[in-house]
Design a protein around this nucleic acid. Sequence first.
DNA 1: GCCGTTTTCGGCCCGACTGTTTTCAGTCG
Length: 573
Amino acid sequence: MIVSSNADVAAVLYEIGEILTIKDDRFRSRAYLLAAQRITSLTEDVKKVKERGELDQIPGVGKSIAATITEVIDTGESKVLEELRESLPPGVRQLMELEGIGPKNAMRLVDELKVSSIDDLEKAAKEERVRVLKGFGEKKEQNILQSIEDYRNRQTRFLLGAILPVVDDMLAWMRESPAVLRAEVAGSYRRRRETIGDLDLLVASDDPDAASARFVAMPPVERVVSHGSTKSTVFLRGHLQVDCRVIPPEAYGAALQYFTGSKDHNVKLRTIGVKAGYKLNEYGLFRREDDKLVASETEEEIYKTLGMDWMPPELRENRGEIEAATEHRLPKLVELDEIRGDLHCHSSWSEGTMTIEEVAEKARALGLSYVVITDHSKSLGIARGLDEKRLREQGKEIDALNRRLRGFTVLKGIECDIKSDGSMDLPDSSLEELDYVVASIHSGFKNDEETMTNRMVSAMRNEHVHAIGHPTGRIIQKRKPYPLNLERVFEEAAAQHVAMEINAFPERLDLDDVSCRQAMEAGVVMSIGTDAHALNQMEFLPLGVSVARRGWLTSKDVANTRTAKDLVRLRRG
DNA sequence: GCCGTTTTCGGCCCGACTGTTTTCAGTCG
């Protein structure tokens, strides 16, 4: 197998790092994990960097890891990884999937109980063979059985869009308690990652016991995993884990910074802190020599003391934001209230459930000043796609509606299929009547990279196309992106002034954050659309803005910040 | 394994909770 993507290369480095962690080789492990993370967020194809011989200029990549990357690109394999895999007794990594089982215990269980799988371990625990081991006991044995049950039930990660209402309810519950002065969810939720593994609830309180008690008494709590005065963990129904930390109000900023992460961001920050003579933890920034508290109330003062500008949570992934903040050159990220329109919306003319008028009313209620109606085109028969005739009829309905609306505009659009030969599903004579054309691929996902890339490029060369819809076709945790040479696509998009969509549908979020940044760096403008098929789905727009922000986009990089009049002139640059 | 305003060696982020341990190791985030 010849490796093709940055993700493949990163996966090898991650696995090496993970195995080194098990072997307690902490620092080498960290080196590999950090390098893996850097490759993941690289906005350029790592093969290109390799061809230029500049692998070791990637931060965190030195001679040795550069050699591993080269080997992986050339052969698809890594000797280092293979040797490490072989050095590990079978079953160890599987056991570590269990909550509460780390490297030490996994190794001992495999070694002393001769188990090589979770199934084996379950049998041993049920036969009470675990409790007799030194350092284990009845309680640990019970916890192992519970962890095995959780493991079999658990959903890997939750979609951000599915988590939003859960968080709203949780915060409302906590804020009702007089012991709770402030409450917020930090972690990957606050950074707006596309999926969330668990929630990190942060509570400011002068009465930690009462605040913690309030937390574990929350209605949707299914099981309390741990319950201390400042730190508790529960599982909600649906097996969503929530960690709660209670801190004194004067340390809220420090705690918020600390628990927002990401881990890599924090490690880097603390390393810089150490070099400057500080110690940073969830209670504040302290001077090392005398342990004097220097900053803790707000995130701003902590970053400032470390010589940096405050940075939006969406940027905190150790993707260069710390360097940018130190040099005072952080981008001014696009804001939700700069978004004037939704650029991808269906109606009952195709597979949507709402009339165009309902769409307009909803968009106006959301604070927008225009919306583009983009129903499917004819070849998507299953979605009642529009042919030339129905599209014309729809246009008349929109004209009539616009005559009635005041201070709001419905734009005529289409989500036009890109056919397998790269041509459009509707003739130019139809497309040129429209204000905004989104062109999407809905078939042939198994074609090779060359074919798919050519197909998309030829669509962009149609002068009536304004944007490419859900450019990679991925469905989070369900369907991989179809093979595509994004670099070539972005190059063409920039040259043609065609926008790339950020599809805000929770399962799509396509382009993703890293690709957005890559597109922006190539000079491409992004087009945010909800792809709503029902009225409440139009509320997904903030998810699209989150992706844009995670991709370092400013208002000029986002087509939606334009007025309707400027939007339809997108192709003129 | 990587890195450098403590530089080519010697560091590498920090604290809470649990279970088992009589003083702490393991795990997690």
